[in-house]
Design a protein around this nucleic acid. Structure first.
Lengths: 257, 257
DNA sequence: CGCCCATTTGACAGCTTTCAAATCGCGTGG
DNA sequence: CCACGCGATTTGAAAGCTGTCAAATGGGCG
């Protein structure tokens, strides 16, 4: 398929990475009608309790999903990077059960839920790939349940850094083992179920142990294996490559670096 | 459609509750080849890291999904009741990222992943309903992330009891506001990210406050509104009825009782 | 240069965990 | 029908990880 320079191209690539898509499937995805829209940090892409009309593909920048509990505390549920569909659930479910907000300046392509539903019915392979996307999403949520439920602060934060690094690399947004964390320590705390004060102490402890190097919000990982050990991190749950990952991890190898 | 007495009938009902299914769709689901299998409490229906070959529909009894973290601690990720597909992810993903185990004696119908994939491709509406099921699954995981991440012990346990009660009622497995908790306090602890000792104290505190009555493992909720308040529980995330739920909750009403 | 938000630090409180030990419930066997 | 055995529940005391509260420091932007 020739390149179209459509902003939906990355979506086609992502969905196609998981499920074989015929040319007609790819064309159908690229033919989806959409509206581009930008958001500033903190802006609400979807607000909890809203009725769902659109689903969004993240074209640039970072976003996060969150819930607010009774006491006013906030829990971040996931971080999203370019190419992610940040609210696929809104293509099917009627009421938003959580908010989606901009972490940085970002741009999304908004696609109406009707268009997505029709696409899945007319092109079942696309439907399967969207289902796949949702299943991987669910797998990541499960890992987060275990992360906040059963790991101590140091392990939780290290795990989050590992996940973020692997996903950045997979999206081609980071080359080596250094990257910029696009969030405040308070947001890190909301990801891990900690307080910002304790996240601060934990980051410093990770630094003291030589597991990370920090400069403002940029993070460098001097020893990947040491960090994944500290973070109890096993990338299987990201389901990045359908079968190779596990075979490689059996040998104690990683794809890159 | 006439009744067939197929054990897959409840699955048809559940999927049909969410997405309109044509007669041909229903017939196709009922025509899925399956094997029945029973498990005793603790038995592994799926083991973490296994290759996926089957997905299972729970025909009777209760099951749970879990992960084990580095220190050997266990986190339960979800509880499943009759009619649930307990490992739908295995229809698409290749490697099991968590285990599924029997909570009680139970029976499942095992369906090969190939059969499910073919069904979604040949009957897109069924694929859409399976996708819907996965999206609701994801919504529940998100709520659990918030539950273990940002709520205190009392609220967490109360929330779990609320969720269990609502789902039992929805599945027709419980009439009033009394039900049997089919799990040990240690398993409750693994659901909530607490220790069994603290779950014990928390249950007693809930009892002391008059929020629940206990007799062995049976639980009675004398005042539903009081418990959902204590548990910061809002059933929207269960997406039980596509639009009515929110409208009702706006009025501060609940469907039954 | 000055303001504002984020980061950092210290002291202390508190919720939960840990570690044991006692009690209870229930299935099994005498 | 009662004794025994084992896992589950309960309880107490003490330790510990993380939270709370406040204040100081630092960095970026107008």
């Amino acid at each position: 398929m020739q390149t179209t320079n459509s902003p939906l191209e990355p979506l086609v690539r992502k969905l196609g990475r998981w499920e074989h898509l015929a040319a007609a499937d790819k064309t159908a995805i690229l033919s989806l009608p959409y509206n581009r829209r930008t958001f500033a940090p903190g802006g609400y892409i979807v607000r909890e309790r809203d009725e769902a009309h659109y689903s969004c593909v993240l074209l640039s920048g970072f976003a996060y999903r969150q819930k607010v509990v009774a006491k006013g505390a906030r829990q971040i549920l996931s971080i999203h990077i370019s190419g992610d569909m940040v609210d696929l659930q809104n293509a099917v479910l009627n009421i938003a059960d959580h908010s989606v907000q901009a972490l940085t300046d970002l741009e999304v392509a908004m696609i109406s839920r009707d268009a997505i539903r029709e696409l899945t019915l007319s092109h079942p392979a696309v439907g399967l790939s969207l289902w796949y996307d949702t299943l991987v999403d669910g797998s990541i949520f499960r890992e987060w349940v275990a992360n906040v439920g059963r790991r101590d602060a140091l392990t939780r934060v290290a795990h989050l850094l590992c996940e973020f690094c692997v996903r950045l690399r997979s999206a081609g947004l980071c080359e080596g083992l250094a990257f910029n964390l696009p969030m405040t320590q308070e947001q890190l705390a909301d990801c891990t179920g900690l307080t910002s004060v304790h996240v601060n102490r934990t980051l410093k402890e990770l630094e003291r142990r030589g597991l990370i190097l920090r400069d403002l919000r940029s993070v460098t990982i001097p020893d990947w294996h040491a960090l994944i050990r500290a973070g109890d991190f096993n990338e299987t749950y990201l389901h990045m490559s359908q079968s190779a990952a596990s075979a490689e991890s059996e040998r104690g190898e990683r794809r890159k670096h």
